[in-house]
Design a binder for these strands. Structure first.
Length: 201
DNA sequence: AAGCTTAGCAACCGCCTCCCA
DNA sequence: CTGGGAGGCGGTTGCTAAGCT
């Protein structure tokens, strides 16, 4: 079905592809009883022919009880756009600001909906700078800086100020004024517990 | 109605980081 | 200090459903 993986060399005959209802049920039942614990040993203990990574992904993205499925609201869309402008493709951090949403879901939504939306508004989705020219989705638009006069400076990672009126965004990006103290509801371990992002722009 | 194209999304892959012995 | 194992992350793939001709 999918490409053979080199990283399953120790996994024996692991199943790949879409999850069945029975597999989902086994995973949910096991985690309800025993908690998440060690993902590597979980599949065997739960009676699943999956690798630990696959189980983790399935649980995190679809089976967790606190997930909010369904369409993104306008406020969520707006928040994702603003967070992406600040954080880039740090999907897990963005997901941390959207309770009930997963990084994978946000990433997919960005790539399929929001990217296109920004392009139609004439905004480069990669750097959130206002582009000009026609924003035809099929052609790669040419982007130009809004406020940087120095052409040599185009690769600099300074934040470019886009006019909110021109860009169609509800607020100019550097004035987002978001409190980006990351309270991560789903991060386990101590990796990000103290992580805070101060908005410096 | 059938075939083709495109969009959406679930899932995989490989790399990176952290932890621990 | 170092190396291996495990978890986590972002990029990418490929299946499927919807829309179009």
């Amino acid at each position: 079905m999918r490409k053979a993986s080199g990283h399953n060399k120790k996994e024996g005959a692991v199943k790949k592809g879409a999850w069945s209802k029975q597999e989902d049920q086994k995973l949910v039942d096991y985690i309800r009883k025993h908690g998440q614990g060690c993902w590597r040993s979980l599949p065997r203990a739960a009676g699943l022919l999956r690798c630990g990574k696959s189980c983790r992904l399935r649980w995190m993205n679809y089976l967790r009880p606190d997930l909010k499925r369904g369409n993104f609201g306008d406020d969520e869309e707006d928040l994702i756009i603003k967070l992406h402008a600040l954080l880039g493709n740090r999907w897990s951090l963005i997901a941390g600001r959207l309770p009930g949403r997963t990084d994978n879901e946000i990433k997919n939504y960005w790539n399929t909906h929001l990217r296109r939306k920004l392009i139609q508004r004439g905004i480069d989705p990669d750097n959130h700078r206002l582009g000009c020219h026609t924003a035809g989705p099929s052609n790669l638009p040419k982007w130009e800086l809004v406020s940087h006069g120095d052409e040599e400076d185009q690769e600099a990672d300074s934040v470019t100020v886009c006019s909110s009126e021109a860009s169609g965004l509800s607020a100019p990006l550097p004035d987002l004024n978001l409190d980006l103290t990351i309270g991560l509801p789903f991060v386990s371990g101590n990796k990000f517990h103290a992580e805070q992002i101060q908005l410096g722009c």
